[in-house]
């Protein structure tokens, strides 16, 4: 559905996108994860044809972005980060306007607008002015406007910024349902839990570079020492610490104040038993034990040394 081949972009001789290559299959739900300023929105703008790419090639449904833009625009729906709606107009008026911009006739636009309002759960607020809506409701109409022409590829750029948990859940469920109905979805966010929930494949982007991509499982396997076993013990015996470090399953051991030890494991749960056994043999009494599983946040931290929300 979408192929990016070594795509680059520079502004004022500064390279913003540094050779990104990606392939997204039809019907897939693909997450683009990265901190603010990573280049996600620039990449999205290039995919939509809003800004030209400097080098490489972007193809959507086999058509080259920049050369067959008119055909491409007919099959993509874009949900921008901004609430790009007319505040003084009603939800229905906004949806009709955007539907007509995608070439829908008056009658078809009206029927579709009603359907879209049902999809985003705001059918009862069709006549309400956007400026009277809550942040979450505005975001839902913002998504609705991109659905008017039944796009094959839905590109969502941070669609849940600054909204309440209830609206966020509604949006996530809507997107999941659209994907299950066959719509290809590209979902960019710096909320890793949203991407983890919605997307089967994920790409992590930072400073204009693709630093990791694959399924959630692929990415977890790449995470060395991502699973952390947090122990609180009765005494920090030096021999116990040294023996812990020699275990095959252990990536590293960090001793903390308050008789606490963080044991970074190569992710497998069964390795926990080895640690407990060793403690028992060394006469160390474990007061408390907590297992923190690897996630995309820890992977990002490991790859970049920074957190996603920095």
């Amino acid at each position: 559905m979408l192929t990016l081949s070594n795509v680059k972009k520079s502004f004022d001789s500064r390279e913003i996108i540094k050779g990104v290559s990606l392939q997204i299959e039809r019907g897939e739900s693909f997450g683009l994860l990265g901190p603010n300023g990573a280049g996600k929105s620039t990449l999205i703008s290039m995919i939509c044809g809003l800004i030209p790419y400097g080098a490489g090639e972007i193809r959507i449904d086999g058509k080259v972005v920049g050369k067959q833009l008119k055909e491409i625009k007919q099959i993509i729906g874009v949900v921008p980060q901004d609430i790009a709606l007319y505040p003084s107009m009603s939800a229905m008026d906004n949806l009709l306007f955007w539907g007509k911009m995608y070439g829908l006739s008056g009658k078809a636009a009206k029927i579709r607008a009603q359907e879209v309002l049902e999809i985003v759960g705001l059918a009862d607020r069709a006549k309400g002015r956007i400026e009277t809506f809550s942040g979450g409701m505005k975001r839902r109409i913002n998504i609705g406007a991109a659905l008017m022409h039944r796009p094959q590829l839905l590109i969502m750029d941070e669609p849940t910024v600054g909204i309440d948990p209830q609206s966020r859940n509604h949006i996530l469920e809507t997107v999941k349902s659209l994907n299950e109905q066959g719509m290809t979805v590209i979902y960019t966010s710096h909320y890793m839990e949203e991407v983890e929930y919605l997307c089967k494949r994920i790409a992590i982007i930072d400073e204009g570079k693709l630093i990791a991509s694959g399924t959630k499982k692929d990415l977890s396997n790449r995470l060395a020492g991502g699973t952390v076993l947090k122990l609180t013990v009765d005494s920090l015996h030096p021999l116990f610490i040294e023996e812990l470090k020699t275990l095959n399953s252990v990536e590293k051991v960090i001793v903390k104040p308050g008789e606490e030890i963080d044991v970074h494991l190569h992710s497998k749960m069964e390795m926990v038993a080895e640690v407990i056994l060793l403690a028992s043999r060394s006469g160390i009494h474990i007061h408390n034990m907590q297992l923190q599983e690897a996630n995309l946040e820890t992977l990002f931290l490991q790859l970049t040394g920074r957190t996603l929300r920095e």
Binding site: S45, C48, G49, L50, K70, K73, Q74, I76, V78, P80, Q81, D82, I83, A84, L85, Y86, W98, M101, Y102, G103, A145
Partner: peptide, 13 residues
Amino acid sequence: QAGIWSRLFTTPV
């Protein structure tokens, strides 16, 4: 400023 123009140019116009 509201991003409406950017959005307009993602449509076939």
